[in-house]
């Protein structure tokens, strides 16, 4: 069962909230993980790891550096699950 992009965004926001304490409404598609959300590489790996399990996808380590914004991650996950 594929998740819609809105569902993926909501799910990512929940993960970021649990891992960092940032409010879910701060996690929007235009935000940069590093610049705007202050997420370091270890935390990013954790977010990716939890997201992989939640959405049933695999995000290879070498792809993670290309996911600059929340929107990048949403689109990647949406495509990866199809």
């Amino acid at each position: 069962m594929a998740h819609s992009e809105d569902e993926i965004l909501a799910g990512l926001a929940e993960i970021v909230n649990e891992e960092t304490g940032l409010p879910t409404d701060a996690v929007t598609t235009d935000k940069s993980f590093t610049e705007d959300l202050d997420i370091d590489s270890l935390t990013m790996m954790t977010v990716v790891s939890v997201a992989e399990e939640k959405f049933g996808v695999t995000i290879p380590d070498e792809e993670v550096k290309n996911l600059a914004t929340v929107g990048d991650a949403v689109r990647y996950i949406a495509q990866a699950q199809s």
Binding site: L42, M45, T46, S49, E52, E53
Partner: peptide, 13 residues
């Protein structure tokens, strides 16, 4: 149960 990719990156710290 789930393989090496399910090991948390925070395991060591």
């Amino acid at each position: 149960e789930k393989g090496p990719r399910r090991v948390s990156p925070l395991t060591v710290p």
